[in-house]
Design a protein around this nucleic acid. Structure first.
Lengths: 328, 328
DNA sequence: TTGAAAGCGCTAACAA
DNA sequence: TTGTTAGCGCTTTCAA
């Protein structure tokens, strides 16, 4: 910028004005500056600008796994809102590891992102308190924050699961299995809770062998599904706790002769063709809502942190409407 | 940092040393500084650090659409490599718009990212020349750079499509349709080329009505598919140019009585259950390779820009092995 | 081992 | 309309 100034024979501030489109520069001077900029190939260094202005015009998004198709639309929605506010998006995966989450979040704070959207892996976010106090707006998505008071945007997992299981019950099922994610994950717990509530609503007693929580790796889910489909009292329907589980469950059920009903949490691409009944949550709206909340805070709105729970939708496509198999 | 220094009763530089784990500080002094850091809740401001050091420890990734499941694994792979090198990832979607691509890329350059990975939307990247000269390493992925000499990592679209179409021909098809993305997209062109090559290899003449290029919105793809399935000489097989096309093609074919063979470029989740034969490219390897190349350059390796083309794999699952329907 | 001073590239505040 | 000066928070250089 200094070079541009001397080349154009003007002061530093004049160049700054031109670069930032500020008023108070004669067209003639502006032209000279522009020429100098062109010929020197000058581009403003935003790092310096950031240092001076205090705002980085960037926000951080920490999610579980950038490769998980569920988070794609969420990610994109956040990006669009950020873009509309002139901000860039820095993002990373926690890989469901609380330590990695914290490491990433603190790295983003050190970069002085203006705001943070976090899909929490851990349950204790007190480490964020000083950062929030220092002005980094933070919104949690998909799962609540741990031990701190902050904005949260999520889907109604409890209600969704309850609705899905009730649907299976309405179609005659009495022995229904639940396969979900690890119990340290909030949504997993909420969904089992919804499952149990629906069973209880119908006066059904849940057998422990019908419930399986754990990592969503295909092998684990497969083993869990097969276990509850064997034995003297096999389940006639399965409720899959998330998209990863559903995918594997569909594979397992496809190999079997006896028809087993299935309802999955989260919609999946091509689920319509496979006739998979799902409880769909709107990941894009989740992301958009969170990002909008974040920018509202950045614009100075300072109301109490709130929890927003979005409704889920039951989409019947066949697999959830299969009656209990007669044999056995 | 200044505050920490005065609180600990030491000089600025000593604090800097402690924060960065540099040697030359007595354990006692270090402890005092640490205490001051704790009690003040100090966190280094990386913006200032960046300004001074010249490196931002961040790279930019510009892709087409963060929500497209094809790019998820690519994105994640790039992130992992970046993480291994201590860098953060800033990313954004070009939405297949060359202007938006440029805007985004230049914004990233203004932030002085150390390097850039770009899935190009446009065909002219000369605007990047000054940036590259200024030291921002750049690698293009999935499609080649336009008008400039740069590293490129992509899949062998031509070979993949040729292989897929040859597979259909080997199963007896003679009238094969091709539905692909817009002709301004490099991979789309390469894949038609592969299609034509395979047809020519087999001595088959392509009817113009069998080839359809355009946006991959479901309505457009549906119309194209239906058009080539009607008429006096309908196709007996379709080669789908990418994952978006495949998804819609599968839906269209599912509604029809007459069996039509299908091979799609790109693998899709659940394609195995639907029995969709695909030409799979490895998006994660694409991303990893590109990122590794990028960091190699950042480490000072300065060999000639090269083009890396990864092989694709044909995965037969049924839809591509359907013989031509006898009727008509 | 420690620290003072200079400066990274920019913008805010104030002068001219 | 234009320019000068100070300083954002850190690291580098060099001296103590």
């Amino acid at each position: 910028m200094k070079d541009v100034a001397s080349r154009a024979g003007v002061g530093l501030k004049t160049v700054s004005r031109v670069v930032n489109g500020e008023p108070g520069v004669t067209p003639d001077t502006e032209r000279r500056v522009q020429e100098a900029i062109e010929s020197l190939g000058f581009r403003r260094n935003d790092s310096a600008r950031v240092l001076r202005k205090g705002r980085t015009a960037s926000i951080g998004l920490v999610l579980e796994d950038l490769a998980d198709p569920f988070y794609g639309p969420l990610n994109r929605a956040v990006e669009e809102v950020a873009r509309a506010h002139g901000a860039l998006l820095i993002n990373g995966s926690s890989a469901e590891d609380p330590e990695r989450e914290q490491e990433l979040v603190l790295a983003l704070c050190a970069r002085r992102v203006d705001g943070l959207i976090v899909i929490p892996a851990g349950h204790d976010h007190r480490y964020l308190e000083p950062e929030i106090k220092a002005g980094i707006a933070t919104v949690f998505v998909d799962r609540p924050a741990g031990q701190i008071d902050a904005d949260v945007v999520l889907s109604d997992s409890f209600g969704g699961a309850r609705k899905g299981v009730a649907h299976l019950i309405a179609h005659g099922h009495r022995r229904i299995g639940f396969i979900g994610d690890q119990p340290r994950i909030h949504t997993a717990v909420e969904r089992v809770r919804g499952y149990r509530a629906a069973m209880e609503d119908a006066g059904l007693v849940v057998d422990d062998s019908w419930v399986s929580l754990g990592i969503t790796a295909p092998e684990r889910v497969r083993a869990a599904a097969e276990a509850m489909l064997e034995g003297p009292e096999p389940v006639t329907a399965i409720f899959a706790g998330n998209n990863r589980v559903t995918v594997t469950a569909v594979r397992v059920l496809a190999e079997r002769e006896r028809p087993v009903a299935l309802v999955g949490f989260d919609d999946i691409e091509l689920a319509d063709l496979l006739g998979i009944t799902v409880i769909a949550q709107d990941a894009a709206t989740l992301g958009r809502t969170a990002a909008e909340r974040l920018f509202r805070r950045l614009d100075g709105v300072d109301d109490e942190p709130a929890l927003v729970a979005l409704e889920t939708v039951l989409i019947p496509r066949g697999s959830g409407e299969v009656p209990p198999s007669a044999d056995r």
